[in-house]
Amino acid sequence: MQILRDRHLKENDDPLHLLNGRVHEAEGRGRAGFALFQAVRLPGPIIWIILAHDSDRPMPGALPRGVAERLHLIEARSETDLLWAVEESLRARPVGLVIATPEKPISLTAGRRLQLAAEAGGTIGLLLIREGGGSNAAETRWKCEPLSGPADSTRHRWILNKNKKGTIGFHDVSWDGATAAFHLVPPAGERCQPEEPPR
Rank of each mutant, 00 (worst) to 15 (best):
R155E: 14
L36S: 03
G21S: 11
L16N: 05
L97E: 01
G149P: 11
P45T: 09
I159G: 00
V185W: 00
W175S: 02
S55K: 14
R77F: 14
K162S: 02
I74V: 15
I99F: 06
A138L: 01
L73F: 13
A118V: 03
R65D: 10
K162D: 00
E27P: 03
L160P: 00
D172I: 15
P197A: 15
A62P: 02
A138M: 04
K104C: 11
T179Q: 08
D152M: 06
G96Y: 00
G21K: 06
I47K: 03
K165Q: 13
R22G: 02
E139V: 00
A76P: 02
E88P: 03
I47Y: 04
R157I: 15
R7V: 13
D6I: 09
P198S: 14
A178E: 13
K165H: 15
L36P: 00
L19H: 11
G122D: 00
S78D: 14
V40N: 02
S135H: 04
M59P: 03
I124G: 00
V40S: 03
G33D: 15
R22M: 11
G149M: 14
L97M: 09
G134C: 05
D54L: 09
T167V: 15
H24V: 01
A100C: 07
F34Y: 15
P150F: 07
R191H: 12
P64D: 05
R91T: 08
G66Q: 11
G125N: 04
A85L: 12
D176N: 13
A76M: 11
G132C: 10
L36T: 03
R141K: 07
L184T: 06
